[in-house]
Amino acid sequence: MIEVKNVTKQFQNETEIKYKDITFETGKSYMLLGASGCGKSTLLNIIAGIISPTSGSVLIDGVNMQEKSQKQRDKFRIEKIGYIFQDFKLINEMTVLDNINILNLEGINTQDAPRLLEELGIAEKKNSKIKHLSGGQKQRVAIARALVKAPDIVLADEPTGNLNFAIGELVIKKLVKASKNKTLIAVTHDERLSKYFDKVIDMNQMIADKKDIFGAGGGTKC
């Protein structure tokens, strides 16, 4: 179970986001909806331990991640969290398999990679360099890399953003299927995909306040 409690995040550009408390139950899939810039990706990054909240805390199975060091959060992320980044975060000069096998550096077993690539329909590209792939193919490589370690938590930031609806739907189905009994939190704009998730969260409702703290205005709702 993931609990987001009293989390605020202030950025260097002086924007501050204050989240309402949210709880994500283990084994359920969540779809986060909301306008661009309302703090969906920031929330995923805070849960993943990539960025730290300015205040508040994220508890995963009762453990306050803010009390852990960056090194411990990194270890937790690589072992327990499968993160599908919006811009893929793949090394362009390396092959599909190498981008997945990079996890071997931390002792993660990636033997399942060929099967996952097969399921995602890009098995024939396994030895191709990332720079030679289309946006949709890169997206599927990023998904395969996130799922290959059989994570407890899957975080997906716009996993269908670069795919047409048909393929996007297929990917979401696979993602949901692969994340069965795990916690899946996916950010997407496409409401048509909401039927595949256990729960849809409108992030516009989950932001308590968003403001430019030195600006003239008060709180701005997403």
Binding site: I50, K71, D74, K75, R77, I78, E79, I81, Y83, F85, K89, L90, I91, I102, L103, L105, E106, R145
Partner: peptide
């Protein structure tokens, strides 16, 4: 990138 995916 490696740091983001969790490599120490």
């Amino acid at each position: 990138l490696m740091r983001l995916i969790g490599i120490s």
